[in-house]
């Protein structure tokens, strides 16, 4: 849906991010590593946008920049038309309510000392939902929607008592509990096995349908991207080498890198005939 008149959810213009090694007293020259090198993207409202790339291509960094976990060095990121670089205080908090993350590693992304209820309800507390009854209700809804039901059974559990897939569902519930408008899923299934991955993909597709959330899906898995995404951008060494509708990119790759990426996929009979 490239020509919708509505304002795009996210607009990225020529952003750069370099990491320099800490300049120590004795180091001769600080080596700089360019993680993101002039990326421009546009994510429309309501779509699922796939960001595909190999490890080290800068896709996770891009996610972190969009989440304002790290600051960009150059360029501009606009969220719903507003530049996010100068956000502070209440405006930043509002941004935090609207943009959420589904993390990569469900084993590391939940605080081991917090129960599932505390984990899911924490964003509600932060964003000022005072009544504990309302928190319980919202947390239960989010857990149900994420496929952990009956929710009340999971409230007192701790992350170590859950399986990987259940943990990821809890993380998704936590991300969705504030009904965000834009969610970044950073390789949400990289630590899960294939069958569970598939159920998580289906869950994400459902959430998009039922809650109308805009999703940035970061992955190295082209098959998953094709299953889930409307549009795809392929990132390589911090630069977007190709973008377009997902079918188009996968069936008619325009760049050598995308072709290499497609060829690197394990071929099963049901992929590409």
């Amino acid at each position: 849906m490239p020509d919708t008149p509505a304002e795009p959810m996210v607009q990225i213009q020529g952003i750069k991010k370099t990491y320099s090694e800490d300049r120590s007293l004795f180091a001769r020259s600080a080596q700089a590593l360019t993680a993101i090198d002039g990326v421009s993207l546009c994510i429309e409202k309501g779509e699922v946008f796939g960001l595909v790339g190999a490890s080290g291509s800068g896709k996770t960094t891009l996610g972190r920049l969009l989440l304002k976990l790290e600051e960009i060095d150059a360029g501009q990121i606009r969220f719903q038309g507003k530049d996010i670089s100068g956000l502070k205080g209440a405006a930043l908090k509002d941004f935090r309510r609207r943009v959420q993350l589904i993390p990569q590693d469900p084993y590391q992304s939940l605080n081991p000392y917090m129960s599932i209820f505390d984990t899911v309800a924490e964003p509600l507390i932060i964003h000022g939902i005072r009544s504990s009854e309302a928190r319980r209700q919202k947390a239960a809804q989010a857990l149900d929607a994420a496929g952990l039901s009956p929710a009340a059974d999971f409230f007192p559990s701790y992350p170590h008592q859950l399986s990987g897939g259940q943990r990821q569902r809890a993380a998704i519930a936590r991300a969705m509990v504030l009904s965000p408008e834009f969610v970044i899923a950073d390789e949400p299934t990289s630590m899960l096995d294939a069958t569970i991955s598939f159920t998580i993909f289906k869950l994400l597709a459902d959430l998009r349908k039922t809650q109308g959330v805009t999703l940035l899906f970061i992955t190295h898995d082209l098959a998953a991207a094709r299953f889930l995404c409307d549009r795809i951008a392929v990132i390589y060494k911090g630069q977007i080498v190709e973008s377009g509708l997902s079918e188009q990119v996968i069936n008619n790759p325009g760049s050598d890198y995308t072709r290499a990426l497609i060829n690197a996929q394990p071929r099963f009979s049901f992929v590409n005939q």
Binding site: R97, S109, R174
Partner: peptide, 26 residues
């Protein structure tokens, strides 16, 4: 560096909250 601290930041937790609710128990 652990992801759950990033998750807390993404949720909008204040520094106080991160220190006392997420780091202290650990």
């Amino acid at each position: 560096q652990r992801p759950f601290i990033d998750m807390a930041r993404v949720a909008g937790a204040s520094h106080m909250r991160i220190i006392f609710r997420h780091i202290l128990p650990n």
